[in-house]
Design a binder for these strands. Sequence first.
DNA 1: CGTCTATTTGAATGTACTCAAAAGCGGTGG
DNA 2: CCACCGCTTTTGAGTACATTCAAATAGACG
Lengths: 182, 182
Amino acid sequence: MTTLLHQNIAKHVALSDRETEQFCNFFKPQSIRKKQFILQEGDTCTFEAFVTKGLFRVYHLDQNGFEQVLYFAMEDWWITDIDSFTNQRPVYVLISKQDKDLAFENIPAIEKLFRIMTQKTHVALQRRMIDYLGKTADQRYIDFSEKYSLLAQRLSNIQIAAYLGISHEFLSKIRKKLSLKK
Amino acid sequence: MTTLLHQNIAKHVALSDRETEQFCNFFKPQSIRKKQFILQEGDTCTFEAFVTKGLFRVYHLDQNGFEQVLYFAMEDWWITDIDSFTNQRPVYVLISKQDKDLAFENIPAIEKLFRIMTQKTHVALQRRMIDYLGKTADQRYIDFSEKYSLLAQRLSNIQIAAYLGISHEFLSKIRKKLSLKK
DNA sequence: CGTCTATTTGAATGTACTCAAAAGCGGTGG
DNA sequence: CCACCGCTTTTGAGTACATTCAAATAGACG
């Protein structure tokens, strides 16, 4: 459990064992019941979390109450910002904004860790934005299922559609068209 | 010129005068002719730049050679990642990746500066993604012209359309519809 | 003035949505 | 074991949103 977090940190930045321990101790284990929010619409996000088991979707409700999925997060992924919703009884470790600031002060490399992580997610989001600007829904679905096949297997088509920005009915039609091609 | 960069840094993070000087000295002033690229398709981005005068658009070419505008940057904005194109003879100061890494090592607060900046742009991009998932082109255009009215005045409709992810013909029709409403 | 580019307009077409209904599927209780 | 429930997926018809292509118009500039 903590091991996963240790490994994840090591992927991004070189910390001494002591620093890693010190930082990881800020994180409190949490688990959450199915269909439970960890952050409600309108709340300000005061934490950062790391998923150790299960699957989150981070989304936003549009004016009609429909979900728009910003991103999914499964094991070994970070969650931050915006409103979050869970399924499949996920488990995560959480650091408060306060403790994070503490860590920034005491462990300089943590600043680097979060800079690198943010940059990476930012690049990924830019790619998605480009996809959205230029690709048709068919292609976005194909790309998504290929790039995140493992994740896609754990999602309903309704959830995938909310991520791709299309109706689930239309996704169904896309799936049919693709299956006929083969 | 450098003053603008000084001010911009101060907005994000508290540096001593000496640190600010030290950091700003890494930046080399540059200017570029109209229609000139500072980074070509396929190049890896090895710098970070700060616009002191003029207007950039940072974009990507799709498979048909059409521009997809990732973002615009005018005075007091940063540019990084992906391919960049300019208009209006912009002026900017540039820091190489190498020098940036040097700054990270020598001035701890710079790490914080880039973390904060990246987080902010990331949040902005997430908002744009949400807009894209949920809003119709009409609304995206209205929101864009309100939110970035100053910027919008300096852009052609073709450029705005490439940012909004629609054809410029369609944008023209949207504009007509809106003008009739009033 | 001529040239180049941006903007507008129209017609035909394609992409995606809405609404409603049917079919499939897993669980749960009798 | 079956019947029923809730939820997901599929299907179809009609409609709205957005594109393409081609052509006309308008502006900017040497």
